[in-house]
């Protein structure tokens, strides 16, 4: 058990180091930030002084070590555009993005699992075919377009919901639906296919043969095992969801980190971009680390093999 945990922890650490190196390299390939920090008529001497002062003349590896040492302490420097600490901006905006991503994930799972289960149990029925066809449609719809269509219907035509911004529950409905629908479609398909595979296994036949009610066979025997791949994919998709908020936040003017990073890229605000990438990556690996821990609970085989 301890070995398993240590292995996962090591995986988390090197992934984070790797991401920080990649984003550090990108930022440095993006051009000279000093030129953006000074007015257009700055002299060569002024430029050189600022470069020296900020340590941009040091070798790249030294700059990376300095960056990493500060980053571990949560210090990513000041935003070139907003002129305030980058971390302050992220801490202000992150709750909005997490709220959106979490709501979308909950909407997706709450609807998708029952749809997938019903489809698997009633395989080949009209209900199964209808919901799987709908799921295929859901998967084929770009979420930002769905967002625009929701605005067109519920804000422009019907006037029921606000077009943009954050604050009330009404503001949350359209962005989370737009972000969650394709995820819902994917989970419904996944649940159905995993469950179908499990329902054909011997232990399910045994459970049925000993006279258990079908409802118990499905809920206690089949679904519990089907949860393992669903949880894995949910963990991975959470990272993609945070990435997905980049566009949906732009559509709905949602004040989260996604919109912040798009603006930061256009403003060439590199410290901000770098910090957001790292913070999102930390959340991604943390969620996946948590999912790995959840396996220990869901899948006794992992516990058994790790102990051997």
């Amino acid at each position: 058990m301890l070995r398993y945990l240590l292995k996962r922890l090591w995986h988390t650490v090197y992934v984070l180091i790797g991401i920080s190196v990649i984003s550090f390299i990108f930022i440095h390939l993006s051009g000279d930030p000093v030129m953006l920090m000074l007015p257009g008529d700055a002299s060569i001497q002024e430029i050189e002084e600022l470069r020296q002062q900020l340590g941009f003349n040091d070798p790249l590896y030294k700059q990376y070590i300095r960056f990493a040492a500060h980053a571990i302490q949560g210090d990513f420097g000041n935003s070139l555009y907003y002129k305030i600490p980058v971390m302050k901006l992220i801490v202000e905006r992150l709750p909005a993005s997490l709220e959106l991503a979490l709501t979308s994930m909950i909407i997706a799972l709450v609807f998708a699992i029952p749809i997938g289960v019903i489809s698997a149990v009633k395989r080949g029925s009209l209900l199964d075919m209808g919901s799987m066809f709908a799921a295929l449609f859901g998967l084929s719809m770009p979420h930002f377009w769905l967002g625009i269509m929701l605005i067109l219907l519920f804000s422009v035509k019907l006037g029921w919901l606000p077009t943009s911004g954050r604050g009330t529950f009404a503001h949350l409905i359209m962005p989370s639906l737009a972000l969650g629908l394709s995820l819902m479609a994917m989970f419904a398909r996944l649940t159905r296919s995993v469950l179908l595979e499990i329902l054909s296994l011997d232990y399910i036949r045994t459970a049925r043969a000993k006279g258990l009610k079908e409802q118990i066979v499905i809920s206690k025997h089949a679904l519990k095992n089907a949860l393992i791949p669903i949880v894995t994919v949910a963990g991975m998709q959470f990272g993609f969801l945070l990435g997905g908020t980049v566009i949906i936040e732009t559509v709905f003017a949602w004040p989260g980190v996604g919109r912040l990073v798009v603006q930061a890229i256009f403003n060439r605000d590199y410290p901000l971009v770098q910090a957001i990438v790292l913070v999102l990556a930390v959340i991604f690996v943390a969620v996946n680390f948590f999912v790995d821990l959840l396996y220990l609970y869901l899948d006794p085989q992992i516990r058994y093999f790790e102990e051997q």
């Binding site: 090197y14 992934v15 991401i19 990272g239 990435g243 997905g244 990073v261 990438v277």
Partner: peptide, 14 residues
Amino acid sequence: DIFMAYPFMLLTIS
């Protein structure tokens, strides 16, 4: 593993 954890949309836009 590192590429998998890098938010894809952010990777492409950066």
